Amino acid sequence: MSGTEVAVHVNRGAAEALEATSGTLETSASFSVLLYGHETPAHVHCRLDGDLERIASLGESNYYVEPETVTRVPVTVVADAIDRPVDGRLEVLTGYGSESVSIAVTVEPGPPGVDVDESLAEPTRSEPEPTAFDRAVDRCSAVTAVEPATLVVLALGAVAVGVAGVTTATIGGPVATAGLGIVGGGVLVALFLLLQ
């Protein structure tokens, strides 16, 4: 049921009185008539007239409206079955037809329907298989899930080993080689302690 509604006041100010808040209604969907009861109870009859009868229907046609209550009258409209506007009237009667109010209703065609088949539920393309490089990166990222500070210490250790290696190659001799071993051992010990 759409949010479109039209209100009719029943027995407001006088017995067997009807008063619609609007004389026209344009819609492209189902709507409701709200019967507002006032001073005395009433039997109200609703009917559709004109071409509106072809595309709309009432659940019931007779309603008992008590004072100080609101009675909802659903009007079901099938607007997707039409391709041009349909005009008609909704009539609300009381007092065995002695009092009536008529509301001109225009039903516009609804938006075109969309056919959905089961192929839309299937993915149109699957995820590509990861390459060997992607798998290696995933493994490395899982292994190297360490804190940034550890990575900084590791980088500085690599620089220290590089400088010690260049120095050993340039100067040569057993002292330079021993210095390279000490720097390399220190970096390994620091790395071991950080990863624990």
Rank of each mutant, 00 (worst) to 15 (best):
I103Y: 12
R89A: 14
I82C: 02
D80T: 03
P112G: 10
R84C: 01
V86E: 08
E108D: 11
V86F: 04
S98M: 15
D115N: 10
S100W: 08
V105S: 08
R89P: 00
E91T: 14
E91G: 02
G88V: 11
A79D: 03
R89M: 09
P109S: 04
V116Y: 12
E99Q: 13
E99G: 03
T76A: 03
V92K: 07
V101N: 08
G95P: 00
Y96V: 11
P85Q: 13
L93P: 02
V77L: 03
V78W: 08
V114D: 06
E108F: 05
G97H: 09
G113T: 10
S102T: 13
E118V: 15
D80H: 07
V116M: 07
D83F: 02
V77P: 01
P111C: 00
S98T: 15
D87V: 14
G113K: 12
P111G: 01
G97C: 04
D117S: 12
D83I: 06
A79G: 08
R84I: 02
P111K: 04
V92G: 07
V101W: 09
V86M: 08
E108K: 08
T76L: 05
V77G: 02
S100K: 06
T94K: 12
P112E: 15
V114L: 09
V116F: 13
A79H: 04
D80W: 06
V78S: 12
V107D: 04
D117H: 06
S100C: 03
P112C: 04
G95H: 09
I82R: 02
G97Q: 14
V92T: 02
L93M: 12
I103V: 13
E118K: 12
E91M: 15
I82P: 00
T76W: 01
P111D: 02
A79F: 09
S100M: 06
L93E: 15
G110N: 11
S98P: 02
S102Y: 03
T106L: 07
V92W: 05
G110R: 05
R84T: 10
P111S: 10
R84S: 11
D115F: 11
A104V: 08
R89W: 14
